[in-house]
Design a protein around this nucleic acid. Structure first.
Lengths: 177, 177
DNA sequence: ATAGATGCAAATATTTTGCCGCCAG
DNA sequence: CTGGCGGCAAAATATTTGCATCTAT
């Protein structure tokens, strides 16, 4: 599909349930743009728009929602360019790709890589996603490096369960992945 | 695609690089079959085959590789049945779905849920996947439960980096997610 | 000027759904 | 017997690629 600026029901769904949780609290404005400039990556009209969207994102975005936002600013931005830009950012290690335990189907979510790793904790019933930082997580990474001899580049923790509101009603677990 | 028993290059690739790492070291034979029987789930010819494949898997399987193996035993097993069975197992919390940081594209990997959670550590260059258990991970889960009030159902840690063999040559990171 | 980026169309890949006939319990 | 299950075809969803054109540097 090439829906253009049109949204989809499930998209809005995720936006709703995760509202109120602010991401990128540490992100300086123009972070991605600067990082790419430093690497000598060409800055185009489209990239300017896409990088700004991701730098300012207050929620987890999908390729689709990024396209949607971009086309509100400039309808000439093409879906393929979104994918290619995401790919480029990932290859520079500037972007994290999450699936949030597939709560909302098999789509992927993106967030610009902050200075510290954090854990994503999602309620499997209401879909709310919280972000948590933890010194234990940092210790865990160091332990894995020692034990396996690997040099860690990316580390992702995704946890699912039932939040306090949803706990009592949780009879059969909603599908998990 | 509906390739039947035919494999694909990338599939074989993953099989190669992860050989030697044995999964399911704790899995008792017939574990899934027993767990479903206890829940009163109907056991069909197809399910018998699929459950056995997953119980005996010595590596991370994709929907495709599960189908391939199943059809070697009985060519009448249909791809859709594989998906429906995976779905059914996930909904009973008997199966974990991983993406292993998308080292080999956006496919998913499945493993039957063992008694203990473990961490997946993948080399982004050679693709080798190691599994690690850690008391720190257990502590981290308890901390998240305390801090967020969530009742954890699933917890997934995926770590990527460069293993000792691949480290020196790692100039530009191979695409990460 | 030119290497690299974009747009467009089409291909690929992966997963899901509707419907109907079949079989495990 | 019968309700859940599986096969088939087709749709839906998600992502990638080839190629011609354009543009940032």
């Amino acid at each position: 599909m090439d829906s253009g600026a049109g949204g989809r029901a499930r998209e809005n769904d995720h936006r709703r349930v995760s509202s109120g949780e602010r991401l990128n609290v540490y992100a300086e404005p123009g972070k991605l743009r600067t990082a790419l400039a430093r690497r000598g990556v060409r800055l185009t009209r489209q990239r300017r728009i896409l990088l700004d969207i991701m730098d300012q994102a207050e929620e987890h975005l999908t390729a689709d929602s990024i396209l949607e936002r971009a086309q509100k600013i400039d309808p000439r931005v093409h879906r393929v360019t979104v994918y290619r830009t995401l790919e480029m950012l990932k290859s520079h290690g500037l972007l994290d790709e999450l699936d949030l335990l597939h709560i909302h189907g098999h789509r992927h979510y993106y967030e610009s890589h902050g200075p510290r790793d954090h854990i994503h904790v999602a309620c499997l019933r209401c879909g709310k996603v919280r972000e948590v930082e933890s010194e234990l997580f940092e210790q865990l990474k160091r332990q894995v490096e020692r034990d396996t001899g690997i040099g860690i580049t990316v580390a992702r923790v995704e946890i699912g369960g039932y939040c306090e509101n949803c706990r009592p009603k949780a009879v059969a677990p909603r599908n998990t992945s």
